[in-house]
């Protein structure tokens, strides 16, 4: 089941440039939260801080407090690998492992985390592919086709299945549909809507309609700061901040 996220005083840097300024945000469990804002506003950096992906970039660092359920992400005893195991991530561009079959792609996280039972693995792969709404399309070529041979939209759903297979509690999605055609995008959106039953979903998007369609809550980022965070309806109809209003009415960015 999904868990909530509590972010307090989160700062992030790339080298000497500060890209996030003390972000506070409480993400509700089992809901979809969207993060919007113009490019370069720090929205991608923000979600990458939630599962400590940010620090995999050379010279990048983050400070502050992030609690996912009971887990203290930046606590002294916390292990980034463990954090990422429990918080799934889907990236902007579909990135299946090119030399692996569809099955192996989904099973990759399980295998590499030391999961050996073949029968249970089959179950988990099937379940993840069903959850990602890809099962029907690929069930006959699980081992025959490589992940890279699928279409863009299928690849992205494969990446979602891959993230779901390790049973995360939170799913982070960094502009998951930005590289996809409209039909694939709508499939991914349906999927997000279904996934919130089981997972807490945080989705970064530059597409405001998408945020409005899939998310219950929306946060607006500008120049590394969280300007406004509220129910999606409120953000898009009666924003409290002038800058939010400017952005959603297309007056800049």
């Amino acid at each position: 089941m999904g868990v909530g996220i509590e972010v307090r005083g989160l700062n992030a840097w790339y080298g000497k440039n500060q890209s996030l300024n003390s972000i506070d945000m409480t993400v509700a469990a089992n809901h979809v939260t969207a993060v919007i804002g113009p490019s370069g506003c720090g929205k991608s950096t923000y979600v990458r801080c939630l599962n400590r992906m940010h620090e995999t970039i050379p010279e990048a660092r983050a400070e502050g407090s992030v609690k996912v359920g009971e887990m203290d992400v930046y606590g002294s005893g916390s292990d980034p690998v463990e954090v990422r195991r429990r918080i799934g991530m889907v990236f902007q561009k579909p990135n299946p492992f090119p030399t692996m079959s569809i099955y192996d792609n989904v099973a990759a996280g399980l295998k590499l985390n030391g999961f050996r039972n073949r029968k249970q693995m089959d179950e988990l792969v099937e379940r993840s592919l069903k959850l990602a709404a890809l099962w029907e399309e690929v069930k006959d070529s699980l081992h025959k086709k490589s992940g890279a041979s699928l279409s863009g939209g299928q690849q992205q759903r494969l990446c979602i299945a891959r993230a779901l297979a390790v049973e995360p509690e939170v799913l982070l999605m960094d502009e998951p549909a930005s590289a996809l055609d409209p039909i694939s995008t709508s499939k991914i959106e349906e999927l997000i809507f279904q996934l919130k039953q089981h997972y807490t979903v945080v989705i970064v998007t530059h597409n405001m309609q998408q945020a409005a369609r899939v998310a219950e809550f929306t946060g607006f980022f500008l120049m590394g700061s969280l300007i406004e965070y509220d129910k999606t309806e409120k953000i898009f109809t009666t924003p409290a901040d002038k800058r939010t209003e400017d952005y959603i009415t297309g007056r800049f960015g």
Binding site: K130, L131, E137, Q209, R213
Partner: peptide, 16 residues
């Protein structure tokens, strides 16, 4: 939370 603004299409049959 309230309902999202946009209308969501009906789930495809492929989704369990």
């Amino acid at each position: 939370p309230t309902e999202p603004l946009g209308q969501l299409p009906k789930p495809a049959t492929a989704i369990p």
